[in-house]
């Protein structure tokens, strides 16, 4: 980007230059307003996708429960407990648990430990990009009531005020056995048809968004990250 024909408005000084809103002078001298952060903005509200009825939904829930694809996203110290889970000793693969590197393909997000406000923003983006149905496992006491960071100025106290949580695994940190038990609990929950967190999130979107926006002061993303 040639710097000499770029003018920045006074706002957005906290963003890096690539992301700032700016007026670019085109080849014929015309002014073009460029706002990179809003290039792919979709402002539409999401709609809840209701489950089917009867045996079809039960069969699908069984498949969903037996094939849990986990988003490889570690937020806090708990993410160090995830790699042993896939090692020969604990071997979570035998429960159908596998790691996926992209939120589009994964159905479970593990919030592993304390969650700072900066990370919460990334968690919300990743969570909303996952496809319905999606499940949240919260690891460690930090996600339940703040844990040892309960009076910190920068870590949240209750995760369920920001995204719907399916299973909490208590402990600081929980051992891999406890995480495996949590996965089995989640499977049981999905098979019972109670894994409807994604729809709850969309139905109560206003409440969740109000809580999120209360602590994320520089809200520079769409209300729902498609």
């Amino acid at each position: 980007m040639p710097e000499d024909n770029v003018k920045y408005p006074a706002e957005d000084q906290s963003l890096s230059p690539v992301n700032r809103k700016r007026v670019v002078i085109g080849p014929e001298g015309e002014d073009i307003l460029v706002d990179p952060l809003r290039d792919y903005y979709c402002t539409a509200r999401p709609e809840p996708e209701l489950p089917r009825q009867g045996i079809i939904e039960k069969f699908m829930n069984w498949a969903r429960a037996e094939s849990l694809w986990v988003l490889g996203f570690g937020t806090g110290c708990g993410s160090i407990e995830i790699p042993p889970l896939l090692s020969p000793r604990y071997d979570a693969y035998r429960f159908g648990v596998a790691m996926r590197p992209t939120p589009r393909q994964s159905s479970v997000i593990i919030i592993s430990g304390y969650l700072s406000v900066k990370t919460l923003k990334r968690v919300i983006r990743s969570y909303e990009q996952m496809q319905n149905p999606k499940f949240v496992i919260a690891l460690g006491s930090c996600t339940i009531n703040g844990g040892m960071y309960w009076d910190s100025y920068n870590t949240i106290n209750r995760l369920d005020h920001y995204i719907p949580v399916d299973v909490y695994i208590a402990g600081c940190m929980p051992r891999p056995e406890a995480i495996l038990a949590g996965f089995n609990k989640l499977k049981q929950r999905i098979k019972e048809g109670r894994g409807e967190g994604a729809n709850d999130y969309i139905k109560n979107l206003d409440w969740y968004k109000a809580n999120q926006k209360k602590i994320i002061k520089d809200w520079n993303m769409p209300d729902y990250n498609w």
Partner: peptide, 19 residues
């Protein structure tokens, strides 16, 4: 121990049942 032999089927069904 690894996955079950039929895990690819389950993954396939699960992917086709994403809403």
């Amino acid at each position: 121990r690894g996955i079950s032999v039929f895990q690819p089927y389950i993954n396939l069904i699960k992917n086709y049942s994403i809403r």
